[in-house]
């Protein structure tokens, strides 16, 4: 008895708020009636749709009597949106109304395993991608370092070459000068070096 009462109260709850014991009994009665009405309405509505649907078929029958006896809706291939009753309005018979809850352990475990596997896959791919990117970055860095070192080495080489060149040119000119000096000194003495100095003089008028 108790569960049925609670069900009735559930129906009565939104209608009557402050009613006492008597009120509750009344409301429960009304709830029962409303329930039966609802059922009757649903029953009535279903045939109505069928009636609405059916006249079309005999109509079609009359038109195309020679070709085919009866066309089912599927055979006709009419777009679903073009039907008398819209797609969303017709509810499948015998199926539970409303939401389907997940409360039993098996279905919960199934969903859980599904979600976990999906997540693991996502994370794994993320990690793989990150690792690959890291490898690429590392390779790029190594290459850049190599290039930098090469460039530096080249620069050093050119610097060294320039230094050597300068030394060589400097070295050869000194020897020649020394030789010349020695010859001059030997020929004219130390004073003879003076006329060799460059002098600036005004041109004669």
């Amino acid at each position: 008895m108790a569960p049925t009462r609670t069900i009735k109260n559930k129906h009565a709850a939104p209608k009557g708020g402050a009613g006492g014991g008597k009120g509750s009994t009344k409301s429960s009665g009304s709830g029962g009636i409303s329930k039966s009405k609802g059922k009757a309405g649903s029953k009535a509505s279903l045939p109505a749709t069928q009636i609405k649907g059916r006249p079309n078929l005999p109509g079609l029958d009359k038109n195309k009597k020679k070709k085919q006896r009866v066309y089912t809706e599927k055979e006709l291939g009419i777009p679903e949106l073009n039907m008398v009753t819209p797609v969303g309005v017709t509810k499948p018979r015998g199926k539970k109304k409303g939401k389907v809850f997940v409360d039993d352990k098996e279905s919960m475990t199934t969903i859980l395993a599904l979600v976990q596997a999906e997540k693991e896959g996502q994370i794994e791919s993320k990690m793989m991608r990150a690792r690959q990117m890291e490898e690429i970055r590392e390779a790029r860095r190594v290459e850049a370092e190599k290039k930098e070192a090469e460039r530096k080495a080249k620069l050093e080489e050119t610097k060294e070459a320039l230094r050597r060149k300068r030394k060589r040119t400097k070295g050869t000119s000194d020897k020649e000068e020394e030789e010349e000096n020695i010859k001059a000194v030997a020929a004219t003495g130390t004073k003879a070096a003076k006329p060799k100095k460059k002098r600036v003089s005004f041109a004669p008028e």
Partner: peptide
């Protein structure tokens, strides 16, 4: 209780932070 879709959404969010949902 939660519906199928709701349960999936909740567990999906939890799986971001947790390794062992079981």
């Amino acid at each position: 209780p939660l519906t199928d879709q709701e349960m999936k959404t909740v567990l999906d969010k939890l799986a971001n932070y947790m390794s062992d949902l079981k």
